[in-house]
């Protein structure tokens, strides 16, 4: 049962016919793992906390740096040097004290990653490197946990939703191959501040849709944003039957 305070706090979304009380209750009961508390993790965590997702688990092994603040809006100048997950927790609790925020100030790997993914209703990938992205994907496929994947660099971004609960859903590795290819990082290639806000906001939106089972999430689709022309393209993305992670292929 929602309290009067909750009915008021969430009234603007409860009034949506697609949401109503049932949708809000689904969010309040949800457990979401956000991996990466940087440029994408900031808007994702802020919107999911504001919208009333019951439990947010934040994982990041980094500390707030002056050069982060241009785009990582969950952090503040006075928290430079503080663990990003702790800095983010303070912002989220100030925004919505009824959200449970758990923090993991470490890089999620191996068994810990598998455990955290298995206990989550949904995972949001906000990381900055391919090694972790492929590991998260494998863990999500193994645990059949939906994954909202976003990436951003320079003035371009990509978003997709993978839902291993659906047998025909592709996975991240159907899209890109694992391997030792180069990784472009924001610290080397640059990134325009609102870009991560746009991509992260799309991730938050998709996460809420999947959790409350509303609309058509971006499953089987890849959305590309070219921020220079401000053009979106949505591509069909099918499961690769020979995928080494979710298909029959060799690892």
């Amino acid at each position: 049962m929602l309290s009067d305070q909750q009915l008021l706090r969430y009234s603007r979304q409860i009034m949506l016919p697609e949401v109503e009380i049932a949708g809000q209750q689904a969010w309040l009961d949800s457990w979401v793992l956000i991996i990466g508390a940087g440029g994408l993790g900031s808007p994702v965590a802020i919107y999911l906390a504001a919208a009333g997702v019951g439990t947010l688990v934040l994982a990041d092994d980094d500390q707030v740096d002056l050069s982060n603040l241009q785009r990582q809006i969950v952090h503040t100048t006075e928290r430079i040097g503080v663990d990003k997950v702790e800095s983010a927790r303070q912002t989220l609790q100030a925004l919505n004290p009824e959200v449970q925020v758990e923090t993991i100030a470490a890089r999620l790997e191996g068994e810990t990653l598998a455990q955290q993914v298995a206990r989550a209703d949904l995972v949001v990938d906000c990381t900055d490197n391919f090694t972790t992205r492929f590991a998260i994907n494998r863990a999500c496929v193994a645990a059949k946990t939906p994954l909202v994947s976003g990436a951003a660099i320079r003035i371009e971004g990509q978003v997709a939703v993978y839902d291993p609960r659906q047998p025909d859903s592709p996975c991240y590795q159907c899209l890109y191959k694992d391997g030792d290819d180069e990784n472009l990082t924001c610290s080397e290639s640059g990134v325009l501040a609102p870009l991560v806000g746009i991509i992260g906001s799309v991730q938050a939106m998709e996460a809420l849709k999947v959790l409350a089972n509303i609309g058509q999430p971006l499953v089987g689709k890849l959305m590309l944003l070219d921020g220079l022309s401000m053009e979106w393209r949505t591509l069909k993305l099918r499961k690769d039957p020979a995928c080494p992670v979710c298909g029959s292929g060799d690892r």
């Binding site: 159907c174 191959k177 290819d181 890849l222 591509l235 069909k236 099918r238 690769d240 020979a242 995928c243």
Partner: peptide
Amino acid sequence: SGRRVAIERNLEIVPRSQ
């Protein structure tokens, strides 16, 4: 060859194995 790219053909990503 061997790079981490996807190929889109007429608005559809072609699975790598194909």
